[in-house]
Design a protein around this nucleic acid. Structure first.
Lengths: 219, 219
DNA sequence: AATAACTTGCACAGTAACGTGCAAGTTATT
DNA sequence: AATAACTTGCACGTTACTGTGCAAGTTATT
């Protein structure tokens, strides 16, 4: 609780416990989005009762978790910029993967569940970003024109989630996941697979970071 | 209930009511998979109590619904056969769309929810069918080789669901949905969009039925 | 018309959560 | 060391369902 009219400052560990609860929720809800607060509290090493000392209710906790996560993703993706729409879209896909990878399940819930509306608000700018890229790509002929922009944009978004979901059940190295996210995005917007692979390999911006300092990678 | 040791035959309307309940469940659960039995019974024009006269419990009802649906789909898709793996895959996508279109939400639940294992059993043969087509396609060079067969197969399956989900929120004519399902499938397995469109248009098997008897179709 | 086969409404027990009030404890801060 | 700021355990009320027993209906079948 925030003490508004008292003489003494709030205890430091209160804020820490609050963070513990959020961290615990991130872990637990990422395993099972319907887990009870009992489970979350246990993971945080606290009692269920004390959850209510930090959050009004379950929804409030989830809301905060999703909000901060979505903001983090939004600001990360917002920074992507590149003159070529195809590259830009691939960069967005790649960065999305890297940001969300460790919170896949919650991300899916945030976008699909009852907070979808709220999440959509936060991600609104990104959505616009994606739509702009697709629209430009359709205009310059680098992306498919046989599906309307809006629908294509949604399919691109959903496909990103599919890669996330599949990789949850069938793990993938971060690097492979990153590439798969780009490949599937390019596939949906219309590139043939050879073109997509060549495209990614031709753009240094799309290369996996590790390989720069260490070019002689085995396997 | 089935009377095993009685003198008189079961009333005819019992079977009818059972069907009503299944039909109601199909409608209601397709709107909200978590709807209560109260809602289902109301839709069927019966009382909640009488549901238990036909089904042991909620799960039992859902199980029967999903089982018969999955069997229907399985037998429909099983009949698809074509020497060319790409055409075969497109045909499967198309037929899947047509079979599932009106039961999209339940289909998604059946595949993703707690009955996933059970559904997977029924659809096992289809899954194998899809994997075979993809494997052949990869071998003959018509499908992408940069993603392992198993993963590509799952992505194809998931993509089919994405089209179903998107069309639930943003309706599509049956014809457009059918084509979109094929296009997205072909995209995932590696075709560029122009190739995919040309491919579909070049194969009479993949044409929309209506246009055959009535070639002069406006708009 | 008799009656078995169904349906219904109601009451009740069960479940698995959520959210709260309170008294007693613990701990960081001053 | 005093004390406000937290945490805890427990009891309790609430919600929204599922599933059952039973007595009193209604209806298809014979």
């Amino acid at each position: 609780m925030i003490a508004t009219t008292s003489r003494r400052a709030p205890r430091r560990d209160s804020a820490e416990n609050r963070e513990s609860l959020l961290a615990a929720a991130r872990v637990v809800f990422n395993r099972d989005p319907n887990a009870s607060l009992e489970t979350v509290a246990a993971q945080a090493g606290l009692s269920r009762r004390s959850v209510y000392g930090h959050f009004a209710n379950r929804d409030d906790l989830l809301l905060e978790l999703v909000t901060t996560g979505a903001r983090r993703v939004a600001s990360a993706l917002q920074s992507v910029s590149h003159p070529d729409p195809l590259t830009r879209l691939a960069l967005i896909a790649s960065k999305l993967w890297r940001e969300v990878e460790s919170v896949r399940v919650i991300a899916v819930v945030a976008v699909r569940g009852s907070l979808a509306h709220h999440t959509a608000d936060i991600l609104g700018a990104i959505r616009f970003h994606v739509r702009t890229a697709i629209s430009e790509g359709q205009a310059d002929g680098s992306m498919r024109r046989d599906v309307p922009t809006e629908r294509l944009a949604r399919l691109v978004e959903e496909t990103a989630l599919v890669v996330l979901e599949d990789s949850t059940e069938h793990p993938l190295s971060a690097r492979d996941g990153d590439r798969l996210a780009m490949l599937m995005t390019l596939a949906i917007v219309g590139l043939g697979w050879r073109d997509a692979d060549a495209f990614i390999d031709s753009k240094p911006e799309l290369a996996w970071p590790e390989s720069q300092p260490n070019p002689g990678l085995r396997h």
